[in-house]
């Protein structure tokens, strides 16, 4: 299962990078979203999958899954929400002000022309 999840995370990364390298702003933002999903899955996989009960002592289980990746991911989820929000607003403000979402036109180097 872990091997499979690694491959899935790799695929998510590949798709995310492909989107981030494109010229369209929205695709870049969606790419970053995918990237964080991939990272979260990868992190979770690293702690081992299905090795025990949910990390809540009330379960009175013999073994629990690793709580540390989960804590890290929880932080990461919320942070990536903040990042996505900032990106979105920057994108929409840039589009509003400059009238384009083509990254090549957003170079801001008119002096060099």
């Amino acid at each position: 299962m872990e091997i499979l999840m690694c491959i899935v995370a790799g695929l998510l990364f590949a798709a995310a990078v492909y989107l981030m390298l494109s010229k369209s702003l929205l695709r870049i933002i969606i790419g970053t979203g995918l990237l964080s999903h991939g990272t979260h899955l990868m992190l979770l996989t690293m702690g081992g999958l299905k090795t025990g009960a949910a990390p809540v002592l009330g379960e009175h289980a013999a073994a629990y899954t690793d709580p540390i990746p989960q804590a890290l991911i929880l932080t990461a989820i919320v942070i990536s929400f903040g990042v996505t929000a900032v990106f979105l607003v920057i994108a929409y403000r840039a589009y509003q002000e400059l009238g384009t979402d083509n990254m090549e036109q957003l170079r801001g180097m008119e002096t060099d022309d």
Binding site: I3, M5, F13, A14, A15, V17, T45, M46
Partner: peptide, 19 residues
């Protein structure tokens, strides 16, 4: 596509090795 595939493969390799 090449860069994306490269990143994906590296990530997968690292994940599998780490596991």
């Amino acid at each position: 596509a090449i860069i994306a595939a490269g990143v994906g493969i590296i990530v997968t390799l690292i994940g599998i090795s780490a596991h």
